[in-house]
């Protein structure tokens, strides 16, 4: 078991490193390693490509981990930040924050502007997660939770549309580009915010493995196994909201990664051990978004496609396939 785990990590880590390296050389400007002597190419490489590849890696890993935590908490394999409207909650609050930041001219102060937007996204994600948790407790049905999540997503989307309609031309442009989802718009400064937050949460989540293993049975059994279920629930909600919020703030809402990657990990690695699943999800999530971003760059020579086009094209058929595999969905 342990040997298999180490081998799988090695394979996934190698694939991540390889996809990261490939991603560095995919973009509208084509160059090779030798071209890095050229200052303008080096500038593109260090100021655009490296932050883009790191963002894809972090965003994929963060959303996949958030998805895994939510699926275990709700005991629902179809749960995920995008499907349940949590990304929409973050998006709405980001839209409000962008409008306020632009109105008060706070966009000129980098950290003030970015911090307000990030915190707003986290608060939006947190509020929707709490609503979903409340509905899950009331209903107990996986399908109800899912339907409410989808409806909530629509309602929040409508409010966001209203804000966009009322927004100034500058803010509207920012919304539209950001709303398509992209890992290309982040800078090294942005990474300075994202990297420590995600790093700390990735590491902390490893310590949730034991309580999550107990929670796989159900909440009553978890409690009887000495787990403080109320504390665990809050911890999971905070981690998923912060991960989803911060990624949505910088990359926009990214579809399907959060839901599909944990399911793919369960299908591929056939283990219920949550310590293993956490590591698998982080690595496979990173691989998935690096791959999707590389495909976005490949399909167009003059500009990069919005990443949601690819994640949806790959993610949706996968989810439809899973819906027909009733056993996997329990």
């Amino acid at each position: 078991m342990q040997k298999k785990f180490i081998l799988n990590i090695f394979i996934l880590a190698t694939a991540t490193a390889l996809l990261f390296f490939i991603n560095l050389f995919f973009g509208t400007v084509k160059f090779s390693l030798a071209d890095l002597q050229n200052p303008s190419i080096a500038n593109i490489f260090y100021e655009i490509r490296i932050p883009k590849a790191f963002t894809a890696l972090l965003a994929g890993a963060a959303l996949a981990l958030a998805g895994l935590l939510m699926q275990t908490l709700f005991r629902n394999p179809l749960a995920g930040p995008y499907v349940l409207g949590i990304s929409s909650g973050a998006s709405l609050f980001v839209a409000i924050a962008i409008m306020l930041v632009n109105s008060f001219g706070l966009g000129d102060h980098y950290f003030v502007g970015k911090t307000i937007i990030s915190i707003s996204a986290i608060v939006g994600a947190l509020l929707v997660t709490l609503v979903i948790l409340f509905i899950s407790k009331k209903s107990g049905s996986n399908i109800t939770v899912l339907l409410v999540g989808i409806m909530l997503s629509q309602i929040l989307g409508a409010f966001q549309g209203l804000i966009e309609y009322l927004a100034s031309a500058d803010s509207l442009k920012t919304f539209v580009i950001w709303g398509m989802g992209s890992v290309s718009n982040t800078t090294n400064k942005d990474l300075g915010l994202m990297l420590p937050v995600c790093g700390v949460l990735f590491f902390s989540s490893l310590f949730l493995a034991k309580p999550l293993n107990a929670l796989l049975l159900n909440e009553s059994y978890a409690q009887n196994l000495g787990i403080n279920v109320a504390k665990l629930r809050i911890t999971i909600i905070v981690i998923t909201a912060v991960l989803t919020g911060i990624i949505t703030a910088f990359c926009g809402p990214i579809a399907f990664v959060g839901m599909s990657v944990p399911i793919a990990c369960r299908l591929l690695f056939k283990t219920s051990n949550q310590l293993h699943q956490i590591v698998y999800c982080i690595l496979l999530g990173a691989c998935t978004l690096l791959f999707c971003d590389s495909v976005c760059q490949l399909l167009s020579t003059n500009f990069s496609l919005p990443i949601n086009t690819i994640t949806t094209l790959i993610g949706s058929p996968f989810v439809i396939y899973l819906i027909f595999r009733s056993r996997t969905l329990n």
Binding site: T72, R75, P77, L206, F207, A209, K210, N213, A214, L216, L217, N218, S220, Y221, L225, G226, I227, R266, K270, T271, S272, N273, Q274, L275, L329, N330
Partner: peptide
Amino acid sequence: LTDKIGGFNLTVFDIVASGRIPFLNAFG
């Protein structure tokens, strides 16, 4: 309990082993 447990790749061994959770280290 009378609750039905299932899904998430849980094997017979995994469920029986969950009885040891109170005695395991932080990573389970």
